[in-house]
Simulated scan of single mutants.
Amino acid sequence: MATTHTARPAPPEALPAQPGPPDAPSGTIRYWAAAKAAAGTAEEPCTGHTLAQVLDAARHRHTGRPEFARVLARCSFLVDGNPVGTRDHATVRLTEGGTVEVLPPFAGG
């Protein structure tokens, strides 16, 4: 009796960290709701000294998804759980192993 084997799909490879400045902290950028749909992923690694650097690298990484930049422009951000608010993104420093949460506007507020 012959047995058949079904080939398993290869596990997805980890995404490389987004390019950032040399010796920049690395962490994770998480996308929520419409930002997740626009990015095509829930999260990915990132590197950068500032929120501005990480967001610039994310825009570059997702140039093939034009909706991504439009959604990102309307988002608010948390860095390590702290709201960024209206601060200039170039002044928001990131830490090694930190997390950037990308939050699009939600219905009702």
Rank of each mutant, 00 (worst) to 15 (best):
G81L: 06
Q18D: 12
V54H: 02
A33P: 05
L94V: 11
P22A: 10
S26N: 12
R59E: 07
N82C: 13
A42E: 04
G98Q: 07
P11Q: 13
I29R: 02
E13F: 09
A69Y: 02
L15A: 12
V54C: 08
P11D: 08
A57Y: 14
L72P: 01
E13P: 09
T41A: 06
A35E: 03
R61F: 08
V84H: 00
A90G: 14
P16E: 14
P16A: 07
A17D: 09
G48F: 05
R65D: 07
L15H: 08
P104F: 01
A10Q: 10
C75I: 00
P16I: 05
R93L: 15
A7M: 03
A37Y: 13
S26G: 15
R8K: 15
V102Y: 03
P105V: 01
P22Q: 08
S76L: 14
P21E: 15
P104S: 09
G109L: 06
P83F: 04
H89Y: 05
R30E: 02
V84R: 03
L78I: 00
P25A: 12
C75P: 07
Y31F: 01
L94A: 00
A52W: 03
S76C: 07
G108T: 04
L94E: 04
H5T: 15
M1K: 14
P25V: 13
A90W: 02
P9L: 04
T95C: 10
S76R: 11
L94C: 05
E44Q: 14
T63L: 15
R87N: 09
P104H: 08
A69W: 03
Y31C: 04
T99S: 07
A17R: 09
V84N: 02
H62C: 08
A10N: 09
H60L: 15
A58T: 09
P21Q: 14
A37L: 15
T99A: 15
E67N: 02
R59P: 01
F77D: 05
S76H: 04
C46R: 10
T28P: 01
P19T: 12
T50C: 11
G85N: 11
D56Y: 09
A69D: 08
F68T: 05
E67M: 14
P11V: 03
S26Q: 15
T28G: 00
A33C: 06
T86A: 09
R93Y: 06
T4Y: 13
R74A: 14
E67S: 13
T41D: 02
P83R: 05
G64M: 03
G64H: 11
T50Y: 14
E44N: 09
A17E: 14
P45N: 11
A107S: 07
L103E: 00
L94P: 06
A7Q: 15
P83K: 10
P12L: 08
A37K: 13
E13H: 12
E44R: 11
P9A: 10
R70Y: 10
A2N: 10
P105T: 00
L72Q: 06
A2F: 11
A90C: 06
T47E: 14
T4R: 05
V84I: 13
P9Y: 08
Q18A: 01
R8I: 08
G98I: 05
E13M: 11
T47M: 02
V54Q: 09
A10E: 14
E67C: 05
L72H: 02
R74P: 03
E101F: 00
P9K: 08
P12Y: 02
H89K: 08
A107P: 07
